[in-house]
Design a protein around this nucleic acid. Structure first.
Length: 417
RNA sequence: GUGGGUAUAGCUCAGCCGGUAGAGCGCUGGAUUGUGGUUCCAGUGGCCGAGGGUUCGAAUCCCUCUACCCACCCCA
Protein backbone atom coordinates (compact mmCIF):
# COMPACT_ATOMS: atom_id res chain seq x y z
CA UNK A 1 0.00 0.00 0.00
CA UNK A 2 1.19 3.51 -0.81
CA UNK A 3 1.42 5.75 2.21
CA UNK A 4 2.15 9.44 2.70
CA UNK A 5 5.92 9.93 2.62
CA UNK A 6 7.86 10.21 5.86
CA UNK A 7 7.39 13.49 7.62
CA UNK A 8 4.31 14.45 5.60
CA UNK A 9 0.72 13.94 6.61
CA UNK A 10 -2.88 14.35 5.59
CA UNK A 11 -4.83 17.02 7.43
CA UNK A 12 -8.31 15.62 7.87
CA UNK A 13 -11.58 16.63 9.48
CA UNK A 14 -12.25 17.33 12.23
CA UNK A 15 -8.86 18.86 13.00
CA UNK A 16 -8.76 20.67 9.65
CA UNK A 17 -11.37 22.95 11.21
CA UNK A 18 -8.76 24.07 13.75
CA UNK A 19 -6.33 24.83 10.91
CA UNK A 20 -8.95 26.93 9.19
CA UNK A 21 -9.79 28.66 12.43
CA UNK A 22 -6.15 29.56 13.07
CA UNK A 23 -5.69 30.82 9.52
CA UNK A 24 -8.89 32.83 9.64
CA UNK A 25 -7.83 34.48 12.90
CA UNK A 26 -4.41 35.26 11.45
CA UNK A 27 -5.88 36.84 8.32
CA UNK A 28 -8.20 38.95 10.42
CA UNK A 29 -5.40 40.19 12.66
CA UNK A 30 -3.12 40.86 9.70
CA UNK A 31 -5.86 42.97 8.17
CA UNK A 32 -6.24 44.92 11.41
CA UNK A 33 -2.54 45.76 11.31
CA UNK A 34 -2.71 46.47 7.60
CA UNK A 35 -0.59 43.59 6.40
CA UNK A 36 -1.23 42.31 2.89
CA UNK A 37 -0.71 38.83 1.59
CA UNK A 38 2.22 37.76 -0.56
CA UNK A 39 2.49 34.39 -2.25
CA UNK A 40 5.94 33.39 -3.35
CA UNK A 41 6.84 30.19 -5.25
CA UNK A 42 7.22 26.88 -3.42
CA UNK A 43 10.66 26.43 -4.99
CA UNK A 44 13.41 28.90 -5.72
CA UNK A 45 16.98 28.94 -6.92
CA UNK A 46 19.09 27.14 -4.35
CA UNK A 47 21.37 30.16 -4.06
CA UNK A 48 18.58 32.25 -2.55
CA UNK A 49 18.39 30.09 0.56
CA UNK A 50 22.09 29.35 0.72
CA UNK A 51 22.86 33.05 0.88
CA UNK A 52 19.76 34.13 2.76
CA UNK A 53 19.66 31.55 5.51
CA UNK A 54 23.42 31.11 5.81
CA UNK A 55 25.82 28.74 4.06
CA UNK A 56 26.95 27.16 7.32
CA UNK A 57 23.56 26.59 8.91
CA UNK A 58 22.17 23.08 9.36
CA UNK A 59 19.16 24.04 7.28
CA UNK A 60 21.33 24.72 4.28
CA UNK A 61 24.02 22.10 4.77
CA UNK A 62 21.84 19.09 5.44
CA UNK A 63 18.13 19.78 5.49
CA UNK A 64 17.18 21.22 2.12
CA UNK A 65 15.24 19.43 -0.57
CA UNK A 66 17.47 20.38 -3.44
CA UNK A 67 17.19 18.95 -6.93
CA UNK A 68 18.58 19.57 -10.35
CA UNK A 69 16.15 20.86 -12.94
CA UNK A 70 16.24 19.49 -16.48
CA UNK A 71 18.32 22.42 -17.65
CA UNK A 72 20.90 21.74 -14.96
CA UNK A 73 19.97 24.56 -12.60
CA UNK A 74 19.75 23.85 -8.90
CA UNK A 75 16.36 24.37 -7.31
CA UNK A 76 15.23 23.99 -3.70
CA UNK A 77 11.88 23.59 -1.99
CA UNK A 78 11.62 26.54 0.35
CA UNK A 79 12.79 25.73 3.90
CA UNK A 80 11.52 29.10 5.13
CA UNK A 81 10.04 32.16 3.49
CA UNK A 82 11.81 35.29 4.63
CA UNK A 83 14.54 35.12 1.99
CA UNK A 84 11.90 34.71 -0.73
CA UNK A 85 9.88 37.68 0.51
CA UNK A 86 12.98 39.86 0.47
CA UNK A 87 13.81 38.54 -2.99
CA UNK A 88 10.36 39.59 -4.17
CA UNK A 89 10.74 42.96 -2.45
CA UNK A 90 13.95 43.61 -4.36
CA UNK A 91 12.79 42.12 -7.64
CA UNK A 92 9.61 44.19 -7.75
CA UNK A 93 11.13 47.33 -6.23
CA UNK A 94 8.59 47.39 -3.44
CA UNK A 95 10.80 50.01 -1.79
CA UNK A 96 9.35 52.43 -4.35
CA UNK A 97 5.87 51.95 -2.98
CA UNK A 98 4.69 54.35 -0.29
CA UNK A 99 5.21 53.52 3.34
CA UNK A 100 6.50 50.44 5.06
CA UNK A 101 5.83 47.20 3.19
CA UNK A 102 3.91 44.93 5.52
CA UNK A 103 3.46 41.49 4.03
CA UNK A 104 2.17 38.20 5.39
CA UNK A 105 2.23 34.68 4.04
CA UNK A 106 1.07 31.25 4.96
CA UNK A 107 1.86 27.89 3.51
CA UNK A 108 4.07 24.80 3.50
CA UNK A 109 7.84 24.77 4.04
CA UNK A 110 10.16 21.80 3.62
CA UNK A 111 13.09 20.56 5.66
CA UNK A 112 14.51 17.08 5.60
CA UNK A 113 14.78 16.50 9.33
CA UNK A 114 14.00 13.42 11.34
CA UNK A 115 10.31 13.76 12.21
CA UNK A 116 9.15 13.93 15.81
CA UNK A 117 6.39 15.54 17.84
CA UNK A 118 5.63 18.95 16.35
CA UNK A 119 8.18 18.53 13.58
CA UNK A 120 7.51 17.43 10.03
CA UNK A 121 9.32 17.49 6.72
CA UNK A 122 6.46 19.39 5.18
CA UNK A 123 5.31 21.85 7.80
CA UNK A 124 3.31 25.02 7.70
CA UNK A 125 4.23 28.52 8.66
CA UNK A 126 2.20 31.66 9.11
CA UNK A 127 4.55 34.57 8.91
CA UNK A 128 4.90 38.26 8.25
CA UNK A 129 7.59 40.75 7.34
CA UNK A 130 7.60 44.52 7.87
CA UNK A 131 10.21 45.91 5.51
CA UNK A 132 11.56 49.39 5.09
CA UNK A 133 12.12 50.71 8.58
CA UNK A 134 14.73 50.30 11.28
CA UNK A 135 12.48 51.78 13.92
CA UNK A 136 12.13 49.86 17.19
CA UNK A 137 8.47 50.92 17.14
CA UNK A 138 7.96 48.44 14.30
CA UNK A 139 9.60 45.71 16.35
CA UNK A 140 7.17 46.29 19.17
CA UNK A 141 4.20 46.38 16.82
CA UNK A 142 5.23 43.11 15.21
CA UNK A 143 5.49 41.41 18.59
CA UNK A 144 2.15 42.84 19.63
CA UNK A 145 0.65 41.51 16.40
CA UNK A 146 1.91 38.00 16.83
CA UNK A 147 0.80 37.80 20.43
CA UNK A 148 -2.62 38.99 19.27
CA UNK A 149 -2.82 36.12 16.79
CA UNK A 150 -1.91 33.56 19.41
CA UNK A 151 -4.43 34.87 21.91
CA UNK A 152 -7.26 35.17 19.44
CA UNK A 153 -6.52 31.69 18.13
CA UNK A 154 -7.29 30.42 21.63
CA UNK A 155 -3.79 29.86 22.99
CA UNK A 156 -2.95 30.74 26.56
CA UNK A 157 -0.14 29.99 28.94
CA UNK A 158 2.62 30.87 26.51
CA UNK A 159 5.75 32.85 27.24
CA UNK A 160 7.30 35.48 25.01
CA UNK A 161 11.08 35.53 25.11
CA UNK A 162 13.01 38.59 23.98
CA UNK A 163 16.62 39.34 23.27
CA UNK A 164 18.95 41.39 21.14
CA UNK A 165 21.70 39.60 19.24
CA UNK A 166 23.51 42.79 18.30
CA UNK A 167 24.67 43.78 14.86
CA UNK A 168 27.76 43.36 12.65
CA UNK A 169 29.37 46.15 14.66
CA UNK A 170 29.06 44.62 18.10
CA UNK A 171 28.31 40.92 17.77
CA UNK A 172 31.77 39.91 16.49
CA UNK A 173 33.33 41.58 19.53
CA UNK A 174 30.99 39.66 21.79
CA UNK A 175 31.59 36.36 19.99
CA UNK A 176 35.34 36.89 20.31
CA UNK A 177 34.92 37.50 24.01
CA UNK A 178 32.75 34.40 24.28
CA UNK A 179 35.35 32.28 22.52
CA UNK A 180 37.92 33.49 24.98
CA UNK A 181 35.82 32.45 27.97
CA UNK A 182 34.93 29.16 26.34
CA UNK A 183 38.58 28.39 25.85
CA UNK A 184 38.68 27.88 29.60
CA UNK A 185 35.14 26.70 30.28
CA UNK A 186 34.41 24.39 27.34
CA UNK A 187 36.53 21.43 28.50
CA UNK A 188 34.25 21.14 31.52
CA UNK A 189 31.13 21.02 29.36
CA UNK A 190 29.27 18.35 27.41
CA UNK A 191 30.76 17.00 24.15
CA UNK A 192 28.21 18.92 22.07
CA UNK A 193 29.20 22.17 23.74
CA UNK A 194 32.86 21.48 23.17
CA UNK A 195 32.08 21.12 19.50
CA UNK A 196 29.84 24.20 19.43
CA UNK A 197 32.47 26.26 21.26
CA UNK A 198 34.47 25.99 18.07
CA UNK A 199 31.84 25.87 15.32
CA UNK A 200 29.14 28.19 16.65
CA UNK A 201 29.85 29.63 20.12
CA UNK A 202 26.45 31.31 20.40
CA UNK A 203 24.81 27.88 20.32
CA UNK A 204 26.52 26.94 23.56
CA UNK A 205 24.23 29.42 25.26
CA UNK A 206 21.06 27.42 24.73
CA UNK A 207 22.44 24.02 25.61
CA UNK A 208 19.84 22.13 27.63
CA UNK A 209 22.16 19.85 29.60
CA UNK A 210 21.53 20.61 33.32
CA UNK A 211 25.18 20.06 34.28
CA UNK A 212 26.28 22.78 31.87
CA UNK A 213 23.94 25.44 33.22
CA UNK A 214 26.20 26.72 36.01
CA UNK A 215 28.97 27.21 33.46
CA UNK A 216 26.62 28.95 31.03
CA UNK A 217 25.41 31.25 33.80
CA UNK A 218 28.88 32.64 34.21
CA UNK A 219 29.46 33.28 30.52
CA UNK A 220 29.29 36.94 29.43
CA UNK A 221 25.90 38.27 28.30
CA UNK A 222 25.48 39.81 24.87
CA UNK A 223 23.32 42.49 26.42
CA UNK A 224 26.42 43.88 28.12
CA UNK A 225 28.17 44.12 24.78
CA UNK A 226 25.62 45.92 22.61
CA UNK A 227 26.93 48.92 20.69
CA UNK A 228 25.64 52.50 20.79
CA UNK A 229 23.01 51.72 18.18
CA UNK A 230 21.84 48.33 19.38
CA UNK A 231 21.65 49.21 23.05
CA UNK A 232 19.12 52.08 22.74
CA UNK A 233 17.22 50.15 20.08
CA UNK A 234 16.68 47.29 22.51
CA UNK A 235 15.74 49.68 25.32
CA UNK A 236 13.17 51.33 23.06
CA UNK A 237 11.61 48.01 22.06
CA UNK A 238 11.23 47.12 25.71
CA UNK A 239 9.75 50.52 26.47
CA UNK A 240 7.14 50.18 23.73
CA UNK A 241 6.23 46.69 24.86
CA UNK A 242 5.89 47.89 28.44
CA UNK A 243 3.65 50.73 27.23
CA UNK A 244 1.34 48.15 25.70
CA UNK A 245 1.38 45.92 28.75
CA UNK A 246 2.75 42.99 26.75
CA UNK A 247 4.43 40.44 28.96
CA UNK A 248 7.86 39.15 27.94
CA UNK A 249 10.97 37.74 29.49
CA UNK A 250 14.40 38.99 28.52
CA UNK A 251 16.58 36.00 27.69
CA UNK A 252 20.11 37.12 26.96
CA UNK A 253 20.92 33.57 25.96
CA UNK A 254 18.17 33.31 23.35
CA UNK A 255 19.96 32.80 20.05
CA UNK A 256 18.46 32.21 16.66
CA UNK A 257 19.46 29.56 14.20
CA UNK A 258 19.36 31.57 11.04
CA UNK A 259 22.30 33.78 10.18
CA UNK A 260 20.32 36.77 9.05
CA UNK A 261 19.00 37.85 12.42
CA UNK A 262 20.33 40.99 14.10
CA UNK A 263 19.23 43.19 16.99
CA UNK A 264 15.76 42.20 18.16
CA UNK A 265 15.02 38.49 18.31
CA UNK A 266 12.07 36.81 19.95
CA UNK A 267 10.45 33.48 20.43
CA UNK A 268 7.25 32.18 21.99
CA UNK A 269 7.29 28.90 23.86
CA UNK A 270 4.42 26.77 25.10
CA UNK A 271 4.42 23.89 27.54
CA UNK A 272 2.10 21.42 25.80
CA UNK A 273 4.31 20.78 22.80
CA UNK A 274 6.87 18.23 23.88
CA UNK A 275 10.50 18.91 23.16
CA UNK A 276 9.69 21.18 20.24
CA UNK A 277 8.18 23.79 22.52
CA UNK A 278 8.71 26.80 20.30
CA UNK A 279 5.52 28.03 18.59
CA UNK A 280 7.15 30.88 16.75
CA UNK A 281 10.39 32.64 16.18
CA UNK A 282 11.31 35.94 14.70
CA UNK A 283 13.58 38.89 14.62
CA UNK A 284 15.14 41.74 12.73
CA UNK A 285 17.32 41.20 9.65
CA UNK A 286 18.51 44.57 8.42
CA UNK A 287 21.40 43.17 6.42
CA UNK A 288 19.58 40.36 4.63
CA UNK A 289 18.89 42.25 1.40
CA UNK A 290 22.58 43.02 0.99
CA UNK A 291 23.63 39.44 1.57
CA UNK A 292 21.22 38.43 -1.18
CA UNK A 293 23.12 40.76 -3.46
CA UNK A 294 20.54 43.52 -3.45
CA UNK A 295 21.70 47.11 -3.85
CA UNK A 296 18.55 48.40 -2.22
CA UNK A 297 18.57 48.41 1.56
CA UNK A 298 15.63 46.50 3.02
CA UNK A 299 15.78 46.66 6.79
CA UNK A 300 13.01 44.55 8.22
CA UNK A 301 11.62 42.45 10.99
CA UNK A 302 9.44 39.40 10.80
CA UNK A 303 8.36 36.20 12.40
CA UNK A 304 7.00 32.85 11.51
CA UNK A 305 4.55 30.79 13.48
CA UNK A 306 4.86 27.02 13.37
CA UNK A 307 1.28 26.39 12.38
CA UNK A 308 1.45 22.65 13.07
CA UNK A 309 2.51 23.39 16.63
CA UNK A 310 0.00 26.17 17.15
CA UNK A 311 -2.81 23.93 15.93
CA UNK A 312 -1.61 21.16 18.23
CA UNK A 313 -1.67 23.46 21.25
CA UNK A 314 -5.05 24.97 20.38
CA UNK A 315 -6.57 21.53 19.85
CA UNK A 316 -5.30 20.46 23.23
CA UNK A 317 -6.65 23.57 24.93
CA UNK A 318 -10.10 23.41 23.30
CA UNK A 319 -10.88 19.86 22.22
CA UNK A 320 -13.74 19.61 19.73
CA UNK A 321 -14.49 23.30 19.79
CA UNK A 322 -13.98 24.15 16.15
CA UNK A 323 -15.79 21.29 14.44
CA UNK A 324 -17.72 22.19 11.30
CA UNK A 325 -21.34 21.38 12.02
CA UNK A 326 -24.16 21.72 9.49
CA UNK A 327 -26.88 24.20 10.38
CA UNK A 328 -29.59 21.92 9.11
CA UNK A 329 -30.20 18.38 7.96
CA UNK A 330 -33.32 17.72 5.94
CA UNK A 331 -34.90 14.32 6.45
CA UNK A 332 -37.25 13.49 3.59
CA UNK A 333 -39.68 10.61 3.91
CA UNK A 334 -40.44 9.17 0.53
CA UNK A 335 -39.70 10.02 -3.08
CA UNK A 336 -41.93 13.10 -3.32
CA UNK A 337 -40.35 14.50 -0.18
CA UNK A 338 -36.84 13.84 -1.48
CA UNK A 339 -37.51 15.88 -4.60
CA UNK A 340 -39.04 18.63 -2.53
CA UNK A 341 -36.04 18.53 -0.14
CA UNK A 342 -33.61 19.08 -3.00
CA UNK A 343 -35.26 22.33 -3.98
CA UNK A 344 -35.57 23.53 -0.42
CA UNK A 345 -31.92 22.73 0.33
CA UNK A 346 -30.73 24.70 -2.68
CA UNK A 347 -32.73 27.71 -1.59
CA UNK A 348 -31.21 27.63 1.90
CA UNK A 349 -27.68 26.96 0.65
CA UNK A 350 -27.93 30.04 -1.50
CA UNK A 351 -28.51 31.93 1.71
CA UNK A 352 -25.19 30.57 3.03
CA UNK A 353 -26.60 27.96 5.35
CA UNK A 354 -24.77 24.68 5.66
CA UNK A 355 -27.39 22.13 4.70
CA UNK A 356 -27.30 18.35 4.45
CA UNK A 357 -30.03 16.30 2.81
CA UNK A 358 -30.52 12.73 3.91
CA UNK A 359 -30.88 10.37 0.96
CA UNK A 360 -33.74 8.67 2.78
CA UNK A 361 -34.25 5.66 4.97
CA UNK A 362 -35.98 5.13 8.26
CA UNK A 363 -36.59 8.30 10.20
CA UNK A 364 -35.04 6.86 13.33
CA UNK A 365 -31.79 6.10 11.54
CA UNK A 366 -31.58 9.41 9.74
CA UNK A 367 -32.19 11.28 12.97
CA UNK A 368 -29.42 9.29 14.54
CA UNK A 369 -27.11 10.24 11.68
CA UNK A 370 -28.14 13.89 11.99
CA UNK A 371 -27.19 13.73 15.64
CA UNK A 372 -23.83 12.09 14.91
CA UNK A 373 -22.78 14.65 12.32
CA UNK A 374 -23.71 17.43 14.74
CA UNK A 375 -26.60 19.02 12.82
CA UNK A 376 -28.01 21.93 14.83
CA UNK A 377 -31.47 21.59 13.35
CA UNK A 378 -33.35 18.89 11.56
CA UNK A 379 -36.25 19.41 9.17
CA UNK A 380 -38.68 16.53 8.87
CA UNK A 381 -40.38 16.45 5.52
CA UNK A 382 -43.04 13.87 4.71
CA UNK A 383 -46.35 13.69 2.92
CA UNK A 384 -48.10 15.34 5.86
CA UNK A 385 -45.82 18.36 5.65
CA UNK A 386 -46.07 18.70 1.90
CA UNK A 387 -49.84 18.50 2.06
CA UNK A 388 -50.10 20.96 4.94
CA UNK A 389 -47.53 23.43 3.61
CA UNK A 390 -45.56 23.41 6.84
CA UNK A 391 -42.46 21.58 7.98
CA UNK A 392 -41.43 20.13 11.30
CA UNK A 393 -38.25 21.86 12.47
CA UNK A 394 -36.49 20.21 15.35
CA UNK A 395 -33.85 21.90 17.45
CA UNK A 396 -31.39 19.08 18.11
CA UNK A 397 -29.96 20.72 21.21
CA UNK A 398 -33.23 21.25 23.07
CA UNK A 399 -35.15 18.49 21.35
CA UNK A 400 -38.05 20.89 20.80
CA UNK A 401 -39.91 20.42 17.54
CA UNK A 402 -42.15 23.09 16.05
CA UNK A 403 -44.11 23.48 12.82
CA UNK A 404 -42.69 26.16 10.52
CA UNK A 405 -43.65 27.54 7.16
CA UNK A 406 -41.13 27.63 4.35
CA UNK A 407 -40.39 31.32 4.62
CA UNK A 408 -39.74 31.03 8.37
CA UNK A 409 -36.95 28.47 8.12
CA UNK A 410 -34.12 30.87 7.35
CA UNK A 411 -35.07 33.13 10.23
CA UNK A 412 -35.15 30.22 12.63
CA UNK A 413 -31.70 29.10 11.49
CA UNK A 414 -30.34 32.64 11.80
CA UNK A 415 -31.13 32.52 15.48
CA UNK A 416 -28.33 30.06 16.03
CA UNK A 417 -25.60 31.69 13.96
C1' G B 1 23.18 11.51 11.20
C1' U B 2 22.67 9.12 16.64
C1' G B 3 19.80 6.72 20.58
C1' G B 4 15.30 4.53 22.81
C1' G B 5 10.28 2.59 22.26
C1' U B 6 6.24 0.32 19.54
C1' A B 7 4.15 -2.77 15.42
C1' U B 8 -2.51 -7.69 16.60
C1' A B 9 -9.80 -5.35 13.45
C1' G B 10 -11.22 1.44 10.78
C1' C B 11 -9.62 3.43 16.20
C1' U B 12 -7.70 2.31 21.47
C1' C B 13 -5.70 -2.01 23.17
C1' A B 14 -5.85 -7.43 25.73
C1' G B 15 -3.65 -12.02 24.38
C1' C B 16 0.89 -15.10 30.98
C1' C B 17 5.04 -20.45 30.74
C1' G B 18 4.46 -21.56 22.51
C1' G B 19 -1.43 -25.19 21.10
C1' U B 20 -3.46 -21.80 14.36
C1' A B 21 -7.25 -14.73 17.55
C1' G B 22 -10.32 -11.34 21.69
C1' A B 23 -12.63 -6.79 24.11
C1' G B 24 -14.34 -1.81 23.98
C1' C B 25 -15.38 1.93 20.53
C1' G B 26 -16.82 2.54 15.34
C1' C B 27 -19.63 0.97 11.10
C1' U B 28 -24.28 -1.77 9.11
C1' G B 29 -28.91 -3.68 10.50
C1' G B 30 -32.95 -5.15 14.10
C1' A B 31 -36.13 -4.27 18.95
C1' U B 32 -44.12 -3.63 14.30
C1' U B 33 -46.38 2.28 11.57
C1' G B 34 -42.81 9.26 11.32
C1' U B 35 -38.55 11.00 16.13
C1' G B 36 -31.78 11.21 17.88
C1' G B 37 -28.71 11.24 22.54
C1' U B 38 -29.62 5.99 26.87
C1' U B 39 -30.42 0.62 26.53
C1' C B 40 -30.70 -4.46 24.37
C1' C B 41 -29.69 -7.91 20.20
C1' A B 42 -27.29 -9.34 15.72
C1' G B 43 -23.90 -8.59 11.77
C1' U B 44 -19.28 -6.47 9.70
C1' G B 45 -14.62 -6.93 10.37
C1' G B 46 -7.42 -9.27 11.10
C1' C B 47 -1.51 -12.74 5.89
C1' C B 48 -1.18 -10.85 14.40
C1' G B 49 4.30 -5.06 9.94
C1' A B 50 7.69 -8.15 6.22
C1' G B 51 11.24 -12.11 5.57
C1' G B 52 13.94 -16.04 7.71
C1' G B 53 15.04 -19.51 11.89
C1' U B 54 13.86 -22.90 16.30
C1' U B 55 9.66 -26.36 17.05
C1' C B 56 5.16 -31.68 15.91
C1' G B 57 3.07 -26.68 16.35
C1' A B 58 4.86 -19.46 16.54
C1' A B 59 0.84 -13.43 17.37
C1' U B 60 3.84 -15.56 21.45
C1' C B 61 10.94 -17.58 21.40
C1' C B 62 15.53 -16.00 18.19
C1' C B 63 17.69 -13.18 13.92
C1' U B 64 17.30 -9.61 9.89
C1' C B 65 14.67 -5.84 7.60
C1' U B 66 10.88 -2.09 7.23
C1' A B 67 7.50 1.41 9.13
C1' C B 68 5.77 4.58 12.86
C1' C B 69 6.49 7.24 17.54
C1' C B 70 9.64 9.78 21.04
C1' A B 71 14.27 12.02 22.19
C1' C B 72 19.26 14.04 20.67
C1' C B 73 21.16 17.30 16.86
C1' C B 74 18.84 21.49 14.88
C1' C B 75 14.69 24.43 14.40
C1' A B 76 8.91 26.74 13.47
Amino acid sequence: MIRAVKGTRDLLPPSIAVWNHVEQVARRVFRAYHYQEIRTPIFEETQLFARGVGEETDIVTKEMYTFEDRDGSSLTLRPENTAAVIRAYLEHRLDQRPGIQKLFYLGPMFRRERPQKGRYRQFYQIGAEAIGSESPAIDAEVIELVVEILERAGLSGFTTLLNSVGCPACRPRYVARLREELGEAAPRMCPDCQRRAVTNPLRVLDCKIPEDQPVIERLPSILDHLCDVCQPHFAAVRQYLDDRGIAYEVRPRLVRGLDYYMRTTFEVVHGALGAQNSVLGGGRYDGLAESLGGRIPAPGIGFSIGEDRLVMAVEEAHPGRFADRPDLMILPLGEAALRHAGLLARELRRQDFSVEVSPGGKLKRTLETAHKIGARFVLILGDDEIAGGTYSLKDMTSGVQTPVRREEIARRLEGIQ
